[in-house]
Design a protein around this nucleic acid. Structure first.
Lengths: 224, 224
DNA sequence: TCTTTGTATATTGTATGCAATATACAGTAT
DNA sequence: ATACTGTATATTGCATACAATATACAAAGA
């Protein structure tokens, strides 16, 4: 936790922000858990000021919720909040592939192909972390092709809020073949400029994720 | 009344945040202008701490940009950043009217009608501030009908980034008739559940705004 | 026993002090 | 005159002290 030397050039508030975000997304900090400033400051070896500023950012990202005079706690994901987020995310992912179909250039096609092949190769392995990163890289290549950076930022922010459950649909290898197939269909559609197929396939892709995450949430509610 | 009580207990950082945002959106603080903590603290009669926290929020909202160790300055809107934002906003506004068509209930229809009539009445006047608020109320009623709060938040955040130019298409009374007509078409489509017409008309509505804002930006660039 | 109230403690909200860094400007050398 | 450099100033980054408020818990009364 105290190894922020590697990012020594960054402001402490950003280091703290990244540290806390990571802790939330990996489940080290669990939904509902309170984020107490003094405690975190001691743990990370900094003062309360950068902790406070980091918590404010996390709030804006939707990862924590703040109650005035009571402090912050890790946001808990309800099925409703998840479907709300996914409803918006689906619309933006569709927009992204639509724009990508129309605007992608040669270099971007090359890069998209690289990320696709990297993902396919990693899908044969069991390294869930690497697979997750390759998945992000593929989608980032699509956003890059849209030429609209803000769109990519917004979708990444929405996607981040369900990273806590991302491993669920990556863990079981039976799903890998399906993921690879979905990516391939999206890729082919974008390369050939087929807007209709691209938006249809990205919808399938997102909805499959939604289904597996909701399944996970329900099972957690069942036992919790 | 409730609002008054809440405002009285609102943390200073939120008061400062609202104050600075208002100053930016009204043009009192101009693009490129530096936001210096001590200066603002003296001006608003508070310490630097709530100023800092407010500036961080403004950064996350895209209204200011921060340079490490140099401070914050009011974000300047380029034509590219504006079209990027509007591209995303259009997709989300379409999603909103789509969902509203399918999900709106009786009370929400009543409220939507009220906001429509209020806007139509105010469009006859010259009070640009009131007209702007009525416009926001109408769109908020649509978001309310979607049942997806997050969608409304996100669109409002995007819309906020062009409030600086909002008065441009409200000021000239010749445009009022067009605005009223557009609202009416959107309203009718939502009430009758006509998804196709609703999304088409909201597109027209947004694109008209885009055109007038871009016109304004270009004229500013010309003289500035 | 249950409720209420008072008090001690914990925690956040705000102000301020100090250190690190950037900026501005004068003075000097070329 | 111009470029460079050193110093003073301005400004942010971080830490800490103090104030305001919420929380927990115990004691007292119904």
């Amino acid at each position: 936790m105290e190894n922020y030397m590697q990012d020594a050039f960054l402001p402490l508030r950003d280091v703290v922000f990244k540290t806390l975000r990571q802790a939330i997304l990996t489940g080290e900090l669990k939904p509902g858990e309170r984020l107490m400033e003094i405690h975190l400051a001691n743990k990370l070896g900094v003062s309360r000021t950068p902790i406070r500023e980091a918590i404010r950012q996390l709030e804006l990202e939707g990862l924590v919720i703040m109650v005035p005079r009571k402090g912050a706690q890790v946001a808990s994901i309800t099925e409703k909040s998840l479907t709300d987020v996914l409803e918006v995310r689906l619309a933006l992912e569709k927009l992204a592939v639509d724009l990508a179909c129309r605007r992608i250039n040669y270099e971007q096609k090359e890069r998209l192909k690289e990320t696709l092949l990297a993902f396919e190769a990693l899908a044969e392995t069991d390294d869930a972390g690497q697979i997750a990163r390759a998945d992000v890289a593929f989608h980032d290549a699509i956003f890059d092709a849209t030429g609209n950076m803000r769109l990519g930022q917004m979708v990444n922010n929405l996607a981040e809020q369900m990273y806590r459950y991302r491993f669920e649909y990556i863990k079981d290898r039976s799903g890998h073949r399906k993921l690879v197939e979905e990516h391939r269909l999206i890729y082919d559609a974008i390369i050939s400029g087929d807007v209709e197929t691209a938006t249809k396939e990205i919808s399938v892709h997102i909805k499959n994720q939604e289904a597996s995450i909701i399944k996970k949430i329900r099972s957690e509610e069942g036992q919790g």
